[in-house]
Design a binder for these strands. Structure first.
Lengths: 203, 203, 203, 203
DNA sequence: CGTTAACCGAGACGGTACGTCTGGTCTTTAA
DNA sequence: TTAAAGACCAGACGTACCGTCTCGGTTAACG
């Protein structure tokens, strides 16, 4: 008992990073389909067993990769919701656009949902991956929802405003364009979006 | 001398339908991963070559299947945007929820993006599939965007309203919940959504 | 209505030749496996149906091709068996060596049985092809066996000589080298062969 | 330290035997064409990959099968070449006749070259298979050529006798009948053959 | 200091689907 | 009736890749 007393050879912690790096590179180079776990292991200088001991499935692996890529966007209420939201959504947009080139030989003017779509599909296939993805997004989004709540209490937003729904509208529009309609996303669109959402449609 | 006069044995048009039916059934029974092109062909009573002559890839096939499933939601402006939008979004919601059970042994209370995610991934993998998917959605959505435009001209919506953005907000929220956060979608949520979008956040 | 009176479109007699030419070329370029009936038809400017109406099987077709390639070696007894045999075997040898390059990217010093082996295999697979091949060879060989018989009656060969066996020994040695051991065949070998067969091993 | 220290999971040596057994049985049951690599693997209780790791092609596989069937015919010079040769050729004849039934629904009185022809064709198609076949026969035949050489030195054969050519004549005649003319081979023919080859045709 | 437990690299293995190819047949329209 | 064109059926081929397993060998903590 005592402290715990892990027995046996300890895991090579560096290996985790090397594997995620290699897998990430391959993902960016070739996309989900055209990359293989085998090659990721080889490129990381690691045996396949070592990789599978950590992530039991290709889907689990790539979700881990994406989770690591997800940059922590700093969120804090400044007293100006519009500015805060615009900054946040632009950060997200940058991230999404970076993942767009992936998985297809980036033909000019040709947009793809790339990695994001693969993550969504992986989540749809394995319940535990789905849970992980949702947890990841919930964590990320909670901060913004809180920010919206603060703005509401502060009087910047109407009292009836539903922060969760408002956030869904904003983030949703971005992902919808990315995953479904394939239309471009940029700062100009973010502006139209924030304006539309904050001002509302009816008077 | 007339149009032309196709030569050679004409394609069996019935086969198309039989294949799509079989593939659709399999997709619903087993999901993308666990179904095979081979079995779809067999079940349709068709040789694999016949199938591959029409859809060069499993991904192409399933997109065709989904395109056919897409039910034509009738859209017409009644003079009451809120009602029209609510009806439309509820129809979409029903369709999405039907596709949710797919691709995972529907554990109770466990939501999945199912087929929709697979289609998004297929679109991300093949440029031509992506184009087809986008065309499909563009066609479907154009009607609603037109409806919103009519409502704006009619004075139901503010003059500054951006119909495209407004639609992205609405549809986007649904797909975002489906594909990313995995949260449930139902009539109650649709209400909150329409209210939030129409009323706006800032007074 | 008389005896018959062929009705309908008459067969294109030229087509036979064009098909055999095309098939022969392909056979020489690529070999049995790597050539397809489809391509032969295309290259002959003929529909597959037309080809199959004439030769019901790929194997039948190539046997027809080979039969046509088989050059008629003139055989007549001159009074000098050794000379006659040597001439005949050299002609055969030339033919075999011509068929050797076939079916493999003629690496230097690398001998192959090429077409001959494929014909043998085709004969082994279909009884009727086998019969055709045997008939072809029987016809060709009968002349030489007759020649040997004449030489025997003429006193050039011993009375006990068995012409059939003698011929088997000579032709057999060539084909054995071609099909089995892959060793080279040339005029020098033909000389050794004729000498060995005529002179015998014991006293 | 010694030679090395194999790494990785060792090959299942038993699998080789099981595969060759299964493939051999199928070959005998159905013949080359009508048997499939897939079924051989299944019947051997082995994954197709395992089979293809060992033999990269159906042709490679069947040559391996035949090589194993090839029974080691014991050869030793007894002082009586005629007897030795007769015994040896009869053994070969038995082997060839056993392989004759293969690959065609043995119609009575209908002879086929069966497996032997397929092996010859396989050798013609792949350079490496050809090399293997030739090596196999070279090994087998070397003993007999040596025996003939001994008989020559012993005075049983004329000093001018060319052992290699003599052997080609004998074995060649058998294979010629098998592969080309399709005529029967039996003990009586072997006798005529040995007599003809040893006694010679001229005086 | 030896035992033991967990790790590591390498690579074979089972399973399974993919997409391709080809042999031969069938169905059209035109000659 | 034959021709050309091309779709169709059937089924094998060889490849790819996932995730598991089996080796020999290493690296700790425990007794």
């Amino acid at each position: 008992m005592g402290t715990s007393g892990r027995r046996g050879r300890p895991r090579d912690e560096e290996a985790d990073a090397r594997i995620l790096d290699a897998a990430g590179d391959l993902l960016l180079e070739r996309g989900y389909d055209r990359m293989s776990v085998d090659e990721a292991a080889t490129r990381a200088g690691v045996a396949k067993t070592t990789l599978y001991r950590r992530w039991p499935t290709k889907d689990h692996l790539i979700v881990a990769v994406v989770a690591r890529i997800q940059d922590a966007v700093p969120v804090a209420y400044s007293g100006d919701v519009r500015a805060d939201l615009t900054a946040y959504l632009n950060a997200i947009t940058d991230g999404l656009n970076r993942m767009r080139q992936v998985a297809r030989p980036a033909t000019a003017g040709d947009m793809s949902a790339g990695l994001v779509a693969e993550v969504a599909a992986a989540a749809a296939r394995h319940a535990d991956v789905g849970a992980a993805v949702q947890a990841m997004f919930t964590r990320r989004n909670a901060l913004v929802v809180t920010l919206l709540e603060q703005a509401r209490l502060h009087g910047e937003l109407r009292a009836e405003t539903d922060p969760e729904v408002l956030f869904d509208q904003l983030a949703g529009a971005l992902y919808y364009r990315l995953l479904v309609t394939g239309r471009p996303i940029d700062a100009a669109y973010v502006d139209r979006l924030v304006t539309g959402a904050l001002d509302g449609a009816t008077s």
